[in-house]
Design a binder for these strands. Structure first.
Lengths: 222, 222
DNA sequence: AGAACATTCAAACAATTGTTTCCAATGACG
DNA sequence: CGTCATTGGAAACAATTGTTTGAATGTTCT
């Protein structure tokens, strides 16, 4: 069942880069196999189908991430002995977990671009797959955030978390294009870690923003 | 040259919905023409190619938007007689302009989903096309934001604007999926305008967030 | 009316897609 | 040795893709 060495890894390495660059539908199996220098039939032989290959590419990132993130949350909870964990520490822990995983493998840029694609592209199988992998950690993380921000209404916190998810995924997945503009306009080269540094106060401020004015009563009075 | 009535509009109406639902590569011309009840060749006859059709779909949103947004900024500048326009008013004006345009046409959801796709999918022709259409208004808007936030370093403002762009596009383009979750978990049905109401204080707080700690000197000291 | 033009239609085009099959070569392990 | 899983190669598969063609039809103007 399990492959240890070459062909499978070669396919995954090539596929994730091409997927990140051009999307799933725009990347053909022949693109992958020719660049990876493996036979065309190898993909169907080892993975079964293109859909399964796509999921395998994600699994190689998500599996280590969930393990690591759970462990980091374990340690964080132990350190606070059942007390409330401050929001900044929760966000910091998440950022660290996200940053650690691709460091062993490929660039964070590829990982984030894949996440962005998963959200915007292919409506079907991928979203479900991600939900199954991400679901448990994200639920746990959400609950900790709830305890850290007791003053926030549940719905408000839900939406703000997704606002910030959008900020991070959008920025990091479109990093190349944005970096080009920024570099041209401000001469300054930004690294991913530089961006995370800039993101931190913004995310914290966004989560702690004042509550919106209550919704008007269905139809605004004249 | 100009078609007034049926076939062209029918194609555009159908194409924008299908594109928004499934992406560009995943939507075939036969999907569009069969659902629009027009002949397959009609697309190439009226638009020339699929790429041109995609751009036409965007033009139908972006052209009215840029006109309207420029006008709104004109009025805003006139009202402040050369003085600095507060950030809240700038954001409010932009939100209003974005909300107004699709109201005449289709749902804001489709518009935002298309914007999201333009950013995440197909790196080539579309991004350039959007840049040409959006470029002038966005530059003008950016300059006004600069005057409204003189304390922000230029690079910091650039990134924060894109952070917020990511928040809005990501949230509104993935609205359907998020709405399903929110509705299931909190029983509350959210409208687009409800979401904009929630976004406002978050965006303002994010833009006014404290500056990040300065970047470490290349390699952190032990 | 006829001429000129714009549009619609069915059919075919060439190219590319994911997938399968058959066959030979390789290596590992019993 | 022989068995079996893994590779590589080449070919073909059925299906779908965007695009083009040429004839039929409609519309418009003189």
């Amino acid at each position: 069942m399990a492959q240890q060495p070459d062909t499978v890894t070669r396919i995954l390495d090539t596929a994730e880069v091409l997927f990140a660059e051009r999307g799933f539908a725009e990347t053909s199996l022949r693109n992958i196999t020719s660049k990876a220098k493996v036979n065309l039939a190898a993909v169907n032989y080892h993975f079964g189908s293109k859909k399964a290959l796509i999921q395998a590419v994600f699994a190689r990132y998500l599996d280590p991430f969930t393990v690591r993130f759970h462990a980091a949350l374990d340690e964080l909870e132990a350190r606070h002995e059942g007390g409330v964990i401050p929001l900044e520490e929760l966000l910091e822990t998440m950022a660290r977990s996200v940053l650690e995983v691709p460091a062993e493998r490929h660039s964070l840029k590829v990982f984030m671009r894949l996440l962005g694609l998963a959200y915007s592209q292919a409506q079907g199988h991928l979203r479900r797959y991600i939900q199954e992998q991400y679901g448990s950690v994200f639920t746990r993380f959400t609950e900790l955030v709830r305890q850290a921000t007791p003053e926030l209404p549940d719905a408000e916190r839900f939406w703000r978390l997704h606002f910030m998810l959008g900020t991070v995924i959008f920025t990091l997945s479109g990093l190349d294009a944005l970096r080009d503009i920024a570099e041209k306009d401000y001469g300054e080269h930004v690294s991913v870690r530089d961006l995370v540094r800039r993101l931190r106060p913004v995310v914290v401020a966004a989560m702690n923003a004042p509550l919106p004015e209550p919704a008007p009563v269905q139809r605004e009075a004249g």
